[in-house]
Amino acid sequence: MAHSTRPMTDWRKAKLPVFAFLAPATIIYTVFMIYPLLDSIRLSFYTSVSGGDLTFVGLDNYRTILGDPGWSATFWNAFWNNMKFFAVHMLVQNPIGIALAAVLSLPQLKLRNTYRTLIFMPTMLSVVVVGFIWQLILSPVWGVGPEILDIFGLKSLFGPWLGKEGSALITLALISVWQWVGIPMMLIYAALLAIPEDLVDAAVVDGASHFEVFLHIKLPLVLPTIAMVSILTFVSNFNAFDLIYSVKGALAGPNFSTDIMGTLFYRTFFGYQLQLGSPTLGATVASLMFIIILVGVLFYLFVVQRRLSRYQL
């Protein structure tokens, strides 16, 4: 975010234009983004009595969600599921993204752009479509899954992964990885391209093999990008909803084993089965999500980013 060059023209020379240029964006952004965020936090301190009137209840909603045995079990279940969901992304998506980026940035690679375009393709599809694609492929009814595994002689490993409590969440996370791996790949690839060729040549002359060049020169130089990709992953994972909802519905079955913060928020807000929806409790869940994301972002800004200096290349 280096604003190396400062603004140059004194605004007083052009008062009206400055205001006119800024106002539309600032107003829409404030009304439809900042105000709702703040208002949601405000709502989390209220409860709605019948008729829609709001009563201030302090931290009661938070006590309910974190303290009430039923609610707290649900909340922590969603939270830990979400952490697992994030962990799978960190452990699978980012390493694969880095590896693909490293391979794609090898010198003299033919068909580089073709590979890049094709591998990025799933990222363009809607999460809903991706969810259904894999639901069909993994469906024991259809039998494509076992048939593909059979090619590698692994047919016996096949199971109804999406349907089993133990494997549903991991499977969904892997589906998400399959879709989104293009993003870390692209961002890291771009960072790798920004490394001057001279630096790589110097390392080669110094006696480094391709792998050593990657390990000692390229990887340290793209660490800030990897950190940025990680925080983007964190935010989007704790904000995820579409995939679980389209494959598993709002109930995030089986037996809430795929419930994450996004689906919990939706159910709390709109209700499900016999449970009535509650905007104020929904706002409370949203505020808790906000806190989680904020902690992550602050950790990134003040701990990770400070330690990783971005080198002038």
Partner: peptide
């Protein structure tokens, strides 16, 4: 600078978190 930072908040904070109030609005 403050305005630039204010406008940048939305890069990291997902708008979905304000859904309850957005629906109300």
């Amino acid at each position: 600078t403050v305005l630039a930072l204010y406008l940048a908040i939305g890069i990291m904070v997902p708008i979905r978190l304000g859904s309850v109030s957005i629906l109300g609005l």
